[in-house]
Computed example of a mutant assay.
Amino acid sequence: MTALRKYQRLECGGLWRETPQDQRREVLVRFGDATLVLSDPKSGAAVSHWSLPAIERVNKGQEPAIFAPGTDAHESLELDDPDMIAALGTVHQAVQAATAKPGRLRGVLLAGSAAAVVLAAVLWLPGALVSHTASVVPPAQRADIGQRALDDLIRVTGEPCKDQLGLQALAALSERVFGPVDTPILYVMPEGVEQPLHLPGDVIILPRKLIEQANGPEAAAGAALVERLRMKAEDPIVPLLQYAGLRATFELLTTASLPDTALNGYGEAMLRATPVALPDAALLAAFEAAQIPATPYALAIDPDGKATADLATNDPYKGLAPSPLIPDDSWVALQGICGG
């Protein structure tokens, strides 16, 4: 969340529970760009990633402060560091302001820009309205809209796979691919997802088969890497607004609120959508920079090797023994993320 960059290097200790029945466990808490990263203080391995906009304090006015990664979450985090508590409070206020209580100044700015954009949209193309609206939606609201799109997708696929050891391994894989600061939230869906997807709010969705049918984490890591590139190539909120329509887009621009029904059916639309094509040169550069072999990903998404032949042929790590992306026991746990 770009408005909160002053907190990016903030770290503190905390006490984490996987479930209410578990013992509290010491963790290192690190404030990232869009996530809160919880890691083992001895090994440094990530044990959980929380989406910053979804975090809620569950004991307002009481000490020590206790947070959860969502309304229905089983995990909890106990904090007594005032700077970290203040940072999470700032995030919550930003989410509330962007999604439920748009400020007067923001309303004036939105209304003023809306008039100009509506005129442009009438005179030029509907795409002008979508493009401008996408450019002014703040990060907190993007995350909220992305969550709504995820909720619609869940109607089709079922809830994301939730095995706790698998989630820890998935968080560790995300951190290995993207680094500890700019780390997206990864989900694995139990059914219905045949190709990787992404959503506003830095959310990447992986097909179950990329994990359960693979010999290692490289294919899933490559899929996440490529989806992040697609996310940068085309703002993920643009196709979402195109689906929602001009009336819903105009309402978002003028009231900072997307109608409740605007995303009905968007989950099915995402599953049918054709992925944005990316140049092989850009893909290979990203794989090389992340030190991930490209061949496992290329073969996983195109077993015949026709569409991804150049990617596999020019793999910068072809023929080399790759360093493990995550430990073997983490890979085993990740393969069981959907419960076997």
Rank of each mutant, 00 (worst) to 15 (best):
N314L: 14
S323M: 08
A98C: 04
E234L: 12
L110F: 13
G319K: 00
E268T: 11
S76Y: 05
Q96M: 06
R272F: 03
L258P: 06
L334Q: 02
G61H: 11
A285E: 13
L271Y: 13
D315I: 01
V193S: 06
P236G: 10
G44V: 01
A286C: 11
L36T: 05
E288K: 15
G89Y: 00
A54I: 04
Q195C: 07
S174D: 08
A300M: 06
L284V: 01
A45C: 13
T295E: 09
P327I: 04
L284Y: 11
Q164H: 07
T157W: 12
S51K: 05
L278H: 13
L197F: 02
H49E: 08
L123Q: 14
L110S: 15
K306W: 15
R17M: 15
P196E: 02
A298E: 01
A300N: 00
Q21K: 03
I205G: 01
E212V: 14
A111M: 10
R228M: 06
A282W: 04
A114N: 04
R208S: 13
L88K: 11
P316L: 00
K101M: 08
G107C: 04
V27L: 01
L263D: 10
D22R: 10
V118E: 09
L109I: 12
S330Q: 13
A333H: 07
V188F: 00
S257R: 14
A46E: 10
D235G: 05
D152P: 15
A94L: 13
G267E: 07
F287D: 10
R247P: 02
A111N: 15
L170F: 08
Y297L: 01
G107D: 11
P217Y: 02
T183F: 00
I85E: 14
R30Q: 12
R25V: 04
G319L: 05
V181Q: 09
A111Y: 12
L325R: 12
D33G: 12
E175F: 12
E191P: 03
D235T: 07
G107T: 09
R9T: 07
F67K: 13
G32I: 07
A262S: 14
G305H: 04
Q195E: 05
L88W: 09
T99L: 02
T295D: 03
G14A: 09
L334C: 06
I337A: 09
S39F: 06
P316T: 01
P160V: 10
M231D: 10
V117L: 10
P316C: 00
P239S: 12
A100V: 04
A256S: 15
L52D: 15
G61N: 15
E191C: 05
D163K: 06
V177D: 11
V238L: 13
A286N: 13
D81R: 11
E268P: 03
A290N: 02
Q8Y: 14
V137S: 13
T261E: 10
G44C: 04
L173K: 08
A121G: 14
A298K: 00
A248T: 08
L109R: 11
G13S: 15
P217D: 03
R9D: 08
A298C: 07
A86Y: 12
G89V: 04
V122E: 03
Y7P: 05
W50I: 07
L79A: 08
G146F: 01
P200F: 12
G13H: 06
A333N: 05
A68T: 09
